[in-house]
Design a protein around this nucleic acid. Structure first.
Length: 461
RNA sequence: GCGGUUAUAGCUCAGUAGGUUAGAGCACUAGCUUGUGGCGCUAGGGGUCGCCGGUUCGAGCCCGGUUAAUCGCCCCA
């Protein structure tokens, strides 16, 4: 017999898990809507042309490609088939792939609909993305991103708004987080030290690991990669981390001679404005070592991680959200000078973090949920009428499908955390009443359907 | 793409230097209770020990291979 299994890195979500995931999604959505962001959905499949070349060299490898339909090998040249080179063959047999993130589809959408969109365009998008990465803790091959972006506005009002939306969502989820922020303009100031773009990129990759591998780790890796001339810059970055307070860090950068340039000045101004606009910067930490991988960021960058006191001390999951400003995103699709800024919420990691912090107790519990139990077949018709009457006035009412022993029906209600059982047998039917049992207290009374509705509805969660 | 670890019941796992019939908890079914759950007691069903091969009188256990899962590296939301 064939044992069923799932593709590596994918998961089923049970009703219990879905209840919690939907709870997170609904909190986010209400915050998004309250700030005027509109929903957008795009297809799971995109043309490979759209996706390729947007995520760096490694990114293309991580794209899930979808085979063409039909007899897709028939038009491939013999020489290509014989070469056994994947990179040569792939373009001939796969024209489409699964989306890798929500930002590139957004850019494509904006370019395709530029004439119909009112700018600034504020959209939210909550959909799964796929990466052919090796799965490990907190890393899945299919996972959900929840993105909010503002396209077509240069003002850092948007950056401030996004930070406040991060704060609003996590406050409502009751999850303590730290929002790290930096600005690419600060990092650009190191171009003078590095000399060329390639080495600068390498430098970004290495310093981005600072929290993971520590000061010595970065020194070691920079040396191994032949960037000893950047050790001074790294030294400065590392020291800046111990500066207390965002204002002090800004001042430090502003007063460091070797960094001075126009981009730095502009970046520090942006950061200063953002801090001024945000109501509270209590959980916003300026960190000059924050780089983030994606190459298209040009302004502020953000990263969120769980820092809740209820999390186990050894809990590490990487970031649960991130984003930044990108001035040239739609440029690759032919639309110049449209700036975008956005952040992403990683639903799966937020879930994992909340679960680790034990924050799901009570989520989705409806104390008024009611199960109607019919004692035997003769009571079913009457019971279904009662269920209908209850459902018209209450939020969640079920009629048990069938008439097994009461024990079984009550076990069912118990397992589903329902608040009440309405039991109907011959006696009740004859008296035109129901037996109303409070499943939390165990109390049971006989009453009319109207009275039952009143009693159930009076229970506040 | 590279390395470590693991693979025994539906789930989580135990299994003692290779030795008769492979165990526990949870879950499930039935009964204790002819119409009353969460707790309890009793009984029961359920496993070709991932797969293939080897060593041995004998393999869940040892060896080789294979597949899968998982953790980490590379890289990155």
């Amino acid at each position: 017999m064939e044992k069923p299994s799932l593709p590596s890195g994918t998961r089923d979500f049970s009703p219990l898990v879905m209840q919690r995931r939907k709870y997170i999604l609904s909190v986010m959505e209400s915050v998004f809507v309250a700030h005027g962001y509109g929903a957008l959905e795009t297809p799971s499949l995109e043309n490979l042309k759209t996706l390729q070349g947007k995520y760096g060299n490694e990114g293309d490898q991580l794209l899930f490609k979808v085979l063409n339909s039909g007899d897709y090998l028939s038009n491939v040249g013999e020489d290509i088939l014989q070469s056994k080179e994947v990179k040569l063959l792939t373009p001939h047999i796969a024209d489409r792939g699964l989306r890798y993130d929500l930002t590139v589809p957004l850019a494509r959408f904006v370019v395709m609909n530029r004439n119909d969109i009112t700018f600034p365009f504020k959209r939210y998008q909550m959909q799964p993305v796929w990466r052919a990465d090796r799965p490990q803790k907190g890393r899945y091959r299919e996972f959900w991103q929840c993105d909010i972006d503002v396209v077509g506005a240069n003002s850092v009002v948007s950056e401030a708004e996004l930070i406040e939306m991060y704060q609003a969502v996590f406050a409502r989820l009751d999850l303590g987080v730290t929002i790290r922020i930096n600005h690419r303009g600060v990092l650009d100031a190191f171009m003078g030290v590095l000399g060329n773009k390639e080495d600068w990129n390498t430098f970004m990759i290495v310093i981005d690991k600072a929290d993971k591998i520590g000061y010595e780790g970065v020194v070691k890796e920079l040396s191994e990669r032949g960037l000893t001339r950047a050790l001074g810059a790294w030294e400065w970055l590392w020291n800046s981390k111990s500066e207390r307070g965002n204002e002090a860090k800004l001042a430090l950068a502003a007063n460091t001679a070797f960094m001075q340039c126009d981009t730095l000045t502009a970046a520090l101004n942006d950061l200063r404005s953002i801090f001024g606009l945000v109501e509270s910067t209590e959980n916003v930490v300026l960190d000059f070592t924050l780089a983030r991988g994606l190459s298209y960021y040009t302004g502020a960058v953000f990263e969120v991680e769980g820092s809740d006191g209820r999390l186990p001390s050894d809990f590490r999951l990487g970031s649960i959200g991130g984003g930044g400003r990108y001035d040239n995103l739609t440029g690759v699709f032919g639309l110049k000078d449209v700036s975008g800024v956005g952040v992403s919420f990683g639903l799966d990691r937020i879930y994992d973090t909340m679960e680790a912090a034990n924050l799901f107790e009570g989520v989705g519990v409806d104390a008024t949920a009611t199960l109607v139990c019919a004692m035997d077949e003769d009571c079913l018709l009457f019971s279904s009428g009662v269920a209908r009457a209850l459902r018209a006035r209450l939020s969640k009412v079920e009629l048990y499908p069938g008439t097994p022993k009461l024990k079984k029906q009550l076990d069912y209600a118990n397992d589903k955390n329902m608040g009440f059982a309405v039991i109907i047998g011959r006696d009740e039917m004859q008296a035109n009443q129901v037996a109303l049992k409070n499943l939390v207290t165990g109390e049971q009374t006989h009453c009319s359907v109207e009275e039952a509705i009143g009693q159930i509805a009076s229970v506040n969660r």
